[in-house]
Amino acid sequence: MTASADSRRFDEIFAGAPLMAILRGMGVERSARLATTAWDLGIDSVEVPLQTEEDDRALREVVRIGAERGKAVGAGTILTVAQVDAAVAAGAAYLVSPGLDPEIVRAAAERGIPILPGVATPSEVGQAVALGLTWLKAFPAQWLGAHWFAHIRGPFPQVKFVATGGMDAGNAGEFLAAGVTVVAVGSALENEAQLPRLAALLQSTP
């Protein structure tokens, strides 16, 4: 997959909503239930991190039910080329990594699947841009702070960021206002008090 095709694919994946869901270590049934909660809420994209065999089974189930709704499901915490292959075999539509590893980026490109690598410094953003990437995961976003994104847009106006780590209904709006394209939430989907706030955020964001 070329860099331009990678970018276009993420443009499509995240076109519907400025939020995505991360279902880490939740098992098959819980992952399926929360994925459905996310989709019903209006969050189109769901990521299932791959760290255990149970995660692989959860990813396959969420991919299955996502296909019935026409939803893209990603595989996260990709650290090795073997995980790239496992994610592709499970039917993932995209990959997410906690850091920036050129070998993983190349492996994803060779297999025709877009990847969202993690960055936390201007140097890492610059390296990712040099690799032809325009969609990046900023992690840990809560530690970076919303102002980081306002500053980083100066030298890198073409980059679109997905803010991950410590995000919920309480701070998502601040990060979106600072220039983040997508905010990733996780446990907030199980908090009944946060669901209406997330829904309101989706409705208020163009």
Rank of each mutant, 00 (worst) to 15 (best):
A3I: 10
D6M: 08
S7H: 14
R8L: 14
E12Y: 07
F14K: 05
A15C: 10
A15E: 09
I22D: 01
G25A: 15
V28F: 03
V28H: 02
A32N: 04
A35E: 02
T37R: 13
E47R: 03
L50C: 00
L50A: 00
R57E: 14
R57L: 13
L59H: 06
G66M: 03
A67G: 14
E68S: 11
G70M: 09
K71L: 06
A75I: 06
A75K: 02
T77N: 01
L79G: 01
V81T: 15
V81F: 08
A82E: 14
Q83R: 06
V84T: 07
V84P: 01
V84A: 01
V84F: 08
A87D: 02
G91I: 11
V96T: 13
V96N: 08
P98I: 03
L100T: 09
D101E: 15
I104V: 15
V105P: 02
R106G: 04
A107K: 02
A109S: 15
P114E: 13
I115D: 03
L116D: 01
P117T: 10
G118M: 13
V119A: 11
A120K: 04
G126K: 10
Q127G: 00
V129E: 07
L131T: 13
L131C: 12
G132E: 11
L133N: 06
L133F: 10
L136C: 09
L136R: 02
F139G: 03
Q142C: 04
L144W: 06
G145Q: 04
H147E: 12
A150V: 08
G154C: 00
K160V: 07
K160S: 15
K160A: 15
A163V: 14
A163P: 15
G165L: 12
G165Q: 12
D168T: 12
G173R: 07
L176Q: 05
L176F: 03
A177N: 11
A177G: 09
A177H: 13
G179L: 08
G179T: 12
G179K: 11
T181D: 14
A184I: 09
A184V: 07
A184M: 09
V185T: 09
G186F: 03
S187D: 15
A188E: 05
E190G: 15
E192G: 03
A193G: 00
Q194E: 15
P196W: 06
L198W: 02
A199F: 00
S204K: 13
